[in-house]
Design a binder for these strands. Structure first.
Lengths: 206, 206
DNA sequence: TCCGATAAACAACGGATGTCGTCTATATAA
DNA sequence: TTATATAGACGACATCCGTTGTTTATCGGA
């Protein structure tokens, strides 16, 4: 039965999990993820195969544990925060997403068939962004009825989509060049709190 | 070797694929997708297991074939189009996404662990929306340097994220109520072509 | 109507998966 | 230091996977 990762005291557990994660990292430098079996991982880690299942339900769970906190950690390292007044903090978030996504699987040929962990990265990024935005928006008071959750979610997915589009461009520009572009597209969502300007074209279903 | 699905003449092939898809649909009404094995599918379909692999690489490919065009088809049925001037057409897209997503796996307890095909639905929806938006934007001329691809992608992901947020709400309002809210958040992206208003707060990395 | 092409059925394989029970090694608390 | 709890090692198991080769049935054209 997989045990929660938060605050594991027993050094045996941490040792084993570290070995498994390290093994997967090593193997992924050579092989594609879905060419790697649990056997391969446990052999590389010098851990019994059955032991693997004491910690993770399958190799996807292992990958999730490895990659899940990655983006969140990057944000923490850069001390990225969002104060709800939408300044350059949003830029920092977008830039972090660019850096993370491009490093994680924008590299080169190794992005052949990442179908396995693209959803994981996606979930990690959108969730992390959403958390930050929600935290920031709690401070600044909303001026419309749109819920902060809706705004934060919409913005986080918009950012992810934009960054992904950028990563997949061939001959893509530098991250620093694309960040302002994305920012311009996304800012209005965050300002979604702002009342609609009169004269704005808002089509509504009759 | 999986053969393309487009224009299959041989009735034997169509028969088998129809049986497999029908079988999967039937099984998914009772079981979770990742509790269903290829064996289960072929037994339910009264098709030999080896034959399955003549048509699909794995069960994900089968699901993909089933669900892939679903949203696109829905849009076609409703004759949804986007003319680039962002009127109520955008509402129709969002509403379609709401209806599709809520029906597909917003149902009830059956959304336990849809981890398997959520990425598929996601890809199908964002791709379909992106296509429509790009088509519409080709007509209306852009007034900024932001590429139509970037705008369309960002908007499509924003819409998907917003709709997903809505689907996951407990006691969620009617789709008709949420569409204008989402529309308000998303419209500025589509109008991303529009030059920035002076006085607009745009934070840029120094 | 017949004939070549090909899809499906079927059996069988090597390998991976996920689970279980038993035994040993290690950690932590008294 | 000792005792108890628990993680890991190990072997075994039924199951599923993906593939291959052979035989039979069906399709579409001549």
């Amino acid at each position: 039965m997989p045990i929660s990762d938060c605050e594991v005291r027993d050094p045996r557990i941490r040792r084993t999990r570290q070995l498994l994660q390290c093994a997967l990292r090593t193997l992924m430098e050579k092989k594609n993820f879905d060419e790697i079996s649990v056997q391969d991982i446990t052999e590389q880690a010098t851990v019994n195969r059955a032991t693997f299942y004491d910690h993770y339900t399958d190799k996807f769970a292992l990958l999730d544990a490895m990659v899940g906190g990655g983006f969140h950690k990057l944000l923490a390292e850069r001390q990225v925060a969002y104060d709800g007044t939408c300044p350059s903090a949003a830029s920092a978030i977008i830039l972090a997403a660019c850096d993370y996504l491009s490093e994680e699987f924008g590299g080169k040929a190794e992005c052949k068939r990442q179908s396995a962990f693209e959803p994981l990265i996606e979930a990690a990024i959108t969730a992390a962004i959403r958390r930050i935005l929600i935290g920031g928006m709690a401070k600044a008071e909303s001026t419309t009825g749109v819920s902060p959750g809706m705004i934060a979610t919409t913005a986080s997915w918009a950012i992810y989509g934009a960054v992904k589009e950028w990563v997949q461009m061939e001959n893509r520009p530098e991250a620093e060049e694309i960040v302002p572009v994305i920012l311009r597209l996304v800012m209005p969502i965050l300002a979604g709190a702002r009342p609609v300007e009169s004269g704005e074209l808002l089509a509504v279903r009759d």
